[in-house]
Structure formats: structure tokens, C-alpha cells
Design a protein around this nucleic acid. Structure first.
Lengths: 210, 210
DNA sequence: CACCAACATGACCGGTCGGTCATTTTCTCT
DNA sequence: AGAGAAAATGACCGACCGGTCATGTTGGTG
């Protein structure tokens, strides 16, 4: 088969174990957050702890690999939507996909909310996602459906905010986030703008007023 | 003086040390989040670790005490605003105060976002805050300035969301949260409602559509 | 001042974590 | 099948954590 992993000179069992490890780590991080232990991940994968460290030199490396995968997948989703007729609808669909991912992955929420770790690759992946979202947003702005002070990075950051709003209720009402997405999206609509536009580059004039 | 701690039969140095401990813990939790160690807190207070555990039987107790203090302070702020003429403006002021607290306290963000710990008192304090916010919100709804599907608990939850949106930028732009507050508040205005109202009690009809 | 109970102290305990490494197992190639 | 390299293993290490406790110290009182 023409898998992406063409197993150039690698042993078959190593490739298989790597797959097991990645799957287990993805599930473990999603369920338990970034603080899940490497031992737990190894156990879920049916491997010894040492094997995990053979594939990834540190926990941070493993986490970064998985977060990058998620971020790139979201970027692809955004890319697929740039040609839609109704840019605002496309933007809405992108945001739905984004919050859906966040609602299903604890570690992703934690990393998005605080990428100040050492995860430089993650930061740049977020940048890329922001740029792709910007092309979506720009079209919606030009179509006059979205207020003109909203940027692509705003959209990306709002994903985390929408999810965080819904998070305390997620157990009781797994779909509440849709409601907060609608609420937030209403605030983005062009005709709904009340507050003065705040170009993201030129702000904080008398910032220390309080 | 008529301090709240009237030192009923307690030794003077104990009262003093308790003050030192509470101040140090407040600062430590705010700066480092809930994962700051008891040793670090003790060090900041200039006390031994054992002394900390004499004042609070567990780390959770200490954290709960400080979180409760913050939540009650916010509830007081909301209480002070219920008599304002412009309920929407009062609501806005409350939200400003709320996000301000969140932006300055890491532990508070973490606890608000995931009160699923054992902190029953914290949960009920959040409930109380939600009820007080509801009186504010109800007046704004009656005045027709806020869409009528928004509840007090919505407001409380949105505080966490707004902060989370701004969190990744807080280092570079400490005041961005004001921008996202305005954006969100625009979505709350009565005339800006587009999406159908979702009474929080009767939801999730065909929820599994995706 | 002298006494004692209340308080402060820090060494200590069990447990968990990320990470290492000598040894053993397994795959692959001839 | 046999040999050798690559990979898997799990015991092990040092660091850190929340929490305990025997011991030393201190503040209030008669």
C-alpha cells in the first residue's frame, strides 16, 4: 500500500508500535489533558515506558507531535472552506469544527490556552491556522457580513473562549457550546457592531486606566 | 480595631502568621495557578511547611478558602450594581470587574473553568454568583437592552470565555480582554440577536446531528 | 519570673513523575 | 538456520509533591 509512512528502512514492528503509541497518546491526552503520565500512555499502547522514550525523546516532543497534528487538521478544514460562496457561513462552519475539536480534547484546550510552554512549533502552527482563518475572515468582511475589525486570529482565539464558556456545563449538556457559538457569532456580524473598531495593531493607548 | 478576625482566644503570632499565609497563598495561586506547591507558598509566607498544614488541613482547603474569597468579592460587586439605572451598563461593569479578576489570577481561571474537583463550596459560590448576576441580567432584559435568552449564569460563564480568548495574548497586550469583552457584549444586545433563543432548560433536541 | 499549652519547625514518609540504561527479545538479511 | 543490528523491556534514578510528627520555641497568664 501507498501509506504515508513508506517504512524506508524501518522495522515493521517499530512502525506498528509507533502507530499504537500515537493512537494511545492521542486518546490519553484528549481524555486526561497534558498532565497524563508517560507511564499511562505506555500502558494504553501496550508498550513499556522505555519504548515511548525511544520514539519521542521527551514528553514535550510527544505532546507537540499530537497537537501539531490536530492544528494542521483544523488548518486543512479552513483551507477547504475558502472557496465557499457564503464566506460568513464558511466561517461559521470552521468555528463549529474548531470548537468541536476543543470539546473533545482536554490537552488541546490546555495547550491552546497557554502555548507559553516551550512548544515553539505549536505556536507557529497556531500562527498558520490564524493566517488561514484570516483568508476566510477577509472574504466575509468584504462580503459585508462580518464586522470589519475582526481578524483571523480573533476567530482562532474565540474558539478557545467559546469552549471555555461552555466547559463547566459540558458534562450536563454536551452541546451547550453550540449556543455560545451562536451568541458569539452574533457579536461578529457586521450590522451588530456597536463598540468602536479596535485595529489589533494599534491599541493600548491609556491602558493603565484601572 | 474591629477587624473581622476578633482574635477570640488566639495567640497574636498565630493571627499574624495566618494573615501572612493567606496573602502569600493568594499571590502564589494568582501567579502560578493551582499547581503551585505548598512548600512554595510556605516559603513565600516565611513559614515552615508544617505551619501551613496547621492552618489548613489540606491544600484543597487552602485553595477553597481563597477562591471563595474572590467569588464572594465578585458577588458583592454584582450586588452593589443591582440598583443602577442602566442595567445593561451595570452588567457591563460587572463583566469588566469579573474579567479583570480572571486576568490577574491563574488559579481562579483554572478553578472556574473546571470546578469538577471536590470543591463543593466553590461550586455553590459560583451558583450564588450566578444568581446575583441573574438579578442584574433580568433587569437588563426587562429594559430591553439585552436579548431575552441570556441568563445570569450565561454571564458568569462568559467571563471565563472572554478571558480565555484573550489569554494567549495577555503577555503582549495585557488589555486585549477589553476588546473581546466588547465583542461579546455586542452579541448580548437585544437588537443583535439573530440566532433563535435557546431557553437553557429545554435544549438538545436533535443534538446528534453531527 | 516561671510555667505550660499552643504554636512553629523541618526532617521525614510514601507516592508519582519524567527520564535512563543494561539486558533481553525480535525482526531482517544472508 | 544463524548472525547481527535494531528495537523493546522494566528495573532503576533523582526530583518533587502533599502530608505527618516528634521536637523545639514562644506567647500569654498567675
Amino acid at each position: 500500500m501507498t501509506e504515508t509512512t513508506a517504512t524506508p528502512g524501518q522495522r515493521a514492528d517499530m512502525v506498528r508500535n509507533r502507530r499504537l503509541l500515537l493512537d494511545a497518546a492521542t486518546a490519553a491526552f484528549a481524555e486526561c489533558g497534558v498532565d497524563v503520565s508517560m507511564g499511562e500512555i505506555a500502558q494504553r499502547a501496550g508498550l513499556a515506558k522505555g519504548t515511548v522514550f525511544r520514539h519521542f525523546a521527551s514528553k514535550e516532543d510527544l505532546l507537540a507531535a499530537i497537537m501539531l497534528q490536530l492544528l494542521d487538521r483544523l488548518t486543512s478544514t479552513a483551507d477547504r472552506l475558502v472557496d465557499a460562496d457564503d464566506a460568513a457561513a464558511a466561517l461559521h462552519e470552521f468555528m463549529t469544527a474548531g470548537v468541536e475539536v476543543l470539546a473533545a480534547d482536554r490537552a488541546f484546550c490546555e495547550v491552546i490556552g497557554r502555548p507559553s510552554l516551550q512548544l515553539a512549533q505549536v505556536r507557529s502552527a497556531i500562527e498558520r491556522l490564524g493566517q488561514t482563518a484570516e483568508t476566510l475572515t477577509a472574504r466575509a468582511r468584504e462580503q459585508g457580513t462580518i464586522r470589519d475589525d475582526v481578524t483571523g486570529m480573533d476567530i482562532v482565539l474565540l474558539l478557545g473562549g467559546i469552549h471555555q464558556t461552555a466547559a463547566p456545563l459540558l458534562d450536563a449538556q454536551p452541546q451547550v457550546w453550540r449556543r455560545y457559538l451562536e451568541l458569539t457569532f452574533d457579536g461578529l456580524r457586521a450590522t451588530n457592531a456597536r463598540s468602536l473598531p479596535h485595529p489589533p495593531s494599534r491599541r493600548l493607548p491609556t491602558a493603565q486606566s484601572d
